[in-house]
């Protein structure tokens, strides 16, 4: 990833005065911030969400980014995400009304962040979904493991787990029409599973790989 120091020195105007140097510096700062925001922050947010840590700080070139998750804010955010996810599922299922969706989008509200600590296996295509026969909640899966398939005009396309984790709730029924990118099965990240749940002890070993 490029850092602040990578900006080509040749761009500085030869014999430029203090003003142009200052504006060049401002521009470089803006570029560095933009890079941090675009490339680094999404990754950091995901890391923070999955790690269970309270704070992450990263140094990059002359820049430093610090992310902190307030303990109390996490709960309402998770609830908002829950309703967001439920809404998304209703929309995605073929044949559902789009009216609410339109109202939501044409009168935009602030975006709700993804629910931390949870990811989903998504549909690779538009078609009819069937889960793997032996799929059960609590089953451990690795990134790339087959969760089920989507039948596209008679040809099955694999639904795979995007991460190492544990199978959570199903978001689509067997035989249901699903669209491309639709969330089908929740995959719980091992770190987020409370220690009281069955199978929890083994997850400690997996946690290091996440």
């Amino acid at each position: 990833m490029p850092t602040r120091e990578d900006a080509p020195a040749g761009e500085a105007p030869a014999g430029g005065g203090a003003d142009s140097r200052a504006s060049l510096q401002t521009r470089r700062n803006h570029e560095a911030i933009a890079r941090l925001a675009d490339d680094l922050l999404p990754a950091l947010i995901a890391k923070l969400a999955s790690s269970g840590l309270g704070e992450i700080e990263v140094r990059e070139g002359g820049w430093k980014a610090r992310l902190r998750m307030p303990a109390v804010a996490a709960v309402p955010a998770a609830r908002a995400a829950e309703s967001h996810a439920a809404h998304g599922t209703a929309r995605a299922a073929a044949g559902h009304s789009r009216t609410e969706d339109r109202d939501r989008r044409l009168r935009p509200e602030p975006e709700v962040v993804e629910e931390p600590g949870r990811v989903a296996a998504k549909s690779p295509a538009v078609g009819i979904y069937s889960p793997r026969r032996d799929l059960v909640v609590g089953m451990r899966v690795r990134a790339g493991d087959r969760i089920g398939s989507v039948n596209v005009l008679g040809v099955g396309q694999d639904v795979v787990s995007p991460v190492d984790g544990v199978v959570g709730s199903s978001l689509a029924e067997a035989g249901e029409a699903v669209e491309y990118g639709q969330d089908l099965v929740r995959i719980e990240l091992p770190e987020r599973i409370p220690a009281t749940e069955p199978g929890a002890p083994a997850q400690v070993a997996v946690a290091g790989k996440a």
Binding site: G95, S97, R98, R102, V126, E179, Y180
Partner: peptide, 13 residues
């Protein structure tokens, strides 16, 4: 179009 439609479906990337 996707918003105004009664029904819309995502077909790919």
């Amino acid at each position: 179009a996707a918003q105004l439609a009664d029904e819309a479906i995502c077909i790919g990337p």
